[in-house]
Design a protein around this nucleic acid. Structure first.
Length: 547
RNA sequence: GCCUCUGUAGCUCAGUGGAUAGAGCGUCUGCCUCCGGAGCAGAAGGCCGAAGGUUCGAUUCCUUUCAGGGGCACCA
């Protein structure tokens, strides 16, 4: 019996009780069932009687008793106790609890997926680093987190498009091009230009692809240099992201908004909506109507659109493309943009509470990380990957909520001990894979399965933990908090190791007599492998068979 | 000044209004002739920054306050 089935059974009991006239109350859509903190309180517990008792005009304990009478009749439910102010503590029959192992193994990769976000069409924008240099530590967390959020949303049934907004317009691109031009000609870095050694690499690439550009005057050469250097830099960014296991469905160019007329169009549309006014030669959006602390300029007095105007056009593009929810993942240094972004949504006629969501993450630091001379004294993502490994980096960034500041300790991440949680979890996976290999050698198979053999307390515990996976995934998706997956996997690994230490999958030593309990344990072992692998996949971390 | 995030064990941090607030590290004590000891079992360690409020119940929600991080462009 899965957690979902138990929850549904309780709902059914409530419905029956209402139909029988025993109680009169509105029943919530989902009854929450939790693992009690103390094992003395049974396998599962619900506080539904505390929640509904008062509404039904009954003492919670009386309400609980009514529910318990019906629940005790449900097949698979072993015992129902009422505790404290009205908690229902439920114990399942060993066989009913153990069936979960089969459910998980047979579901395979699908175990953990759920339909809690079915019907949601989500645009998930993250990283969106300027194409004027390599990805650095500031992008690392958003890459790991954004990708993991996209994965848990998909696992919960949402239709997700992950998107990278390329700021390839504006003066910065000219500065970028001039920096490359100067490097090609041995000139010093221009005023406010980009100093890193990577500019030299870009200069070499540009020179190799278009040697005729060298020696031309700046004005003539710049457009082509800009284009070639930009392409080379984006290729570098995409390569680094790929090495980090992060993929995007769409790379969206800001320039395409300007050139395609989308920016002008957006201004016109917002004007129709009645939120635009003209003042001192500039065109303004009245964002203060929707919670911003000041109004924002869309078109400067000199006729040039602002970056904000492109933001507005970009939002409208997302809206036009049919996304019901637009999620932006931004660093804390951009938190001042939240209100104005939401105001754009509201000005466009959207609900700024539902159609747009801006996640603000705190920044990270890595103690002792070497600054990249190549990139101009910043910490490069590529260097971090080479130094710490993509798995350790992604996992350690993925196991904290976005609003928690992180100071990574590189010495810890390189250790192969419990210090380093990614090893603890990966080790559990490798160990369970090894146990399965060993079982095959000893002729323990999954041909038969008697769930009632799984009676050890550690088996009960492991089954209970495994059963929570779908609801953990759904929670991670609902709250955009994939760190719940990581914390959960650590719990799975712990329960697995305890079980592994307490029981055996294969007969001992020379004994070759395979018993039903051995097969049952192999099912449980493989169910654990499945959950660990599926969970690591959601975090973009590998699940090694051997370490 | 305004906005925002954080404050929980010695350290790094989890914790969706519920029962005795958790994990890892560090400290201490045990456990492999047998499936991976990168592991397991146990001990010690807490005024959940402070003060009010909401209610059957608050680490969790609200207000105030203290301390620390980040941000407040006709830049991109």
């Amino acid at each position: 019996m899965t957690l979902e089935e138990l929850s549904a059974a309780i709902s059914a009991c409530l419905t029956q009780a209402v139909a029988a006239g025993e109680i009169s109350v509105d029943i919530p859509d989902v009854v929450r069932v939790e693992r009690p903190k103390s094992r003395e309180h049974g396998d599962w517990a619900t506080n539904i009687a505390l929640q509904l008792g008062k509404k039904a005009g009954m003492a919670p304990r009386d309400f609980a008793q009514l529910l318990a009478n019906r629940l005790a009749e449900v097949p698979g439910v072993g015992a129902v106790d009422i505790a404290g102010p009205g908690f229902l503590n439920i114990t399942l029959d060993a066989a009913a609890a153990g069936e979960l192992a089969r459910t998980i193994v047979e579901a395979g990769k699908a175990y953990g997926t759920n339909d809690s976000l079915a019907g949601h069409v989500v645009n998930m924008e993250f990283v969106s680093a300027n194409p004027t240099g390599p990805l650095h530590i500031g992008h690392t967390r958003w890459a790991a987190l954004g990708d993991a959020i996209a994965r848990v949303l998909r696992a919960s049934g949402a239709d997700v498009t992950s998107e990278y907004y390329i700021n390839d317009a504006g003066n910065q691109m000219n500065v970028f091009a001039r920096s490359v031009y100067n490097r090609m000609h041995g000139l010093p870095v221009p005023e406010g230009g980009y100093p890193g050694e990577y500019i030299k690499e870009l200069a070499d690439i540009v020179e190799a692809e278009a040697p005729e550009l060298k020696g031309l005057d700046e004005e003539t050469a710049l457009p082509q240099i800009r284009e070639l250097a930009y392409k080379a830099q984006m290729a570098d960014i995409k390569k680094t992201l790929a090495d980090f296991g992060v993929s995007f469905d769409v790379f969206f160019s800001e320039t395409s908004l300007h050139e395609g007329g989308a920016v002008a169009d957006a201004v016109a549309r917002l004007r129709e909506q009645g939120h635009i006014f003209d003042q001192e030669g500039a065109v303004w959006l009245r964002t203060t109507d929707f919670g911003d602390d000041k109004n924002r300029v869309l078109i400067r007095a000199n006729g040039e659109p602002t970056y904000f105007a492109a933001d507005a056009a970009y939002y409208l593009s997302k809206k036009d493309r049919g996304f019901t929810e637009k999620i932006y993942l931004l660093g804390a240094d951009h938190h001042g943009y939240v209100n104005r972004l939401k105001a754009i949504a509201a000005c466009a006629g959207d609900d700024k509470e539902k159609n747009i969501e801006v996640l603000i993450g705190q920044l990270i630091s890595v103690n002792g990380a070497k600054l990249s001379k190549r990139a101009g004294n910043i910490i490069e993502l590529r260097d971090l990957i080479d130094w710490l490994g993509a798995d350790a980096l992604r996992y350690s960034l993925g196991r904290f909520p976005a609003d928690s500041p992180i100071a990574l300790d590189p010495e810890q991440l390189k250790k192969n001990t419990n210090d380093n949680p990614v090893f603890y979890v990966q080790y559990a996976h490798a160990r369970s894979a090894a146990a399965a290999r060993n079982a095959a050698e000893k002729n323990v198979t999954r041909e038969s399965f008697d769930a009632s053999e799984l009676t050890d307390p550690t088996e009960n515990e492991l089954l209970a933990v495994l059963g929570q996976f779908p609801s953990v995934v759904a929670g991670a998706a609902e709250f955009r908090e994939p760190h719940r997956i990581a914390r959960y996997l650590e719990q799975v690994a712990g329960a697995y190791h305890s079980w592994y230490a307490a029981t055996r999958i294969t007969p001992i030593g020379e004994d070759t007599n395979v018993l039903p309990v051995h097969s049952a344990r192999l099912w449980l072992n493989d169910a654990t492998t499945t959950v660990l692998a599926n969970g690591l996949e959601l975090l973009g971390v590998s699940a090694p068979e051997r370490m």
